[in-house]
């Protein structure tokens, strides 16, 4: 127990040592979370965009008809 207390006390510098580690952890974790969230959002948007793409030839259908009529 005493050993643990000494460890966390950091020779009296606890209020300088632990905040350094804490802020590093907070900033880096926040960076990971925001980067992953952005990737997920873009991936999802791209998926729905690409899912729509097969619908495109249908929109061009009138042109295809025109070709058939020509031949």
């Amino acid at each position: 127990m005493n050993e643990i207390a000494t460890f966390f006390d950091m020779g009296g510098y606890a209020w300088y040592v632990w905040p350094s580690y804490a802020i590093s952890a907070v900033v880096l974790v926040a960076l990971v979370i925001s980067s992953r969230r952005r990737l997920k959002l873009v991936e999802r948007a791209l998926e729905s965009m690409e899912a729509k793409r097969p619908a495109r030839p249908q929109r061009k259908a009138p042109a295809a008809h025109a070709e058939k009529e020509m031949s």
């Binding site: 950091m10 009296g12 300088y16 350094s20």
Partner: peptide, 10 residues
């Protein structure tokens, strides 16, 4: 003293 441990993240 123990403040040297800040170096490992600084």
């Amino acid at each position: 003293g123990e403040t040297v441990r800040i170096m490992f993240v600084h």
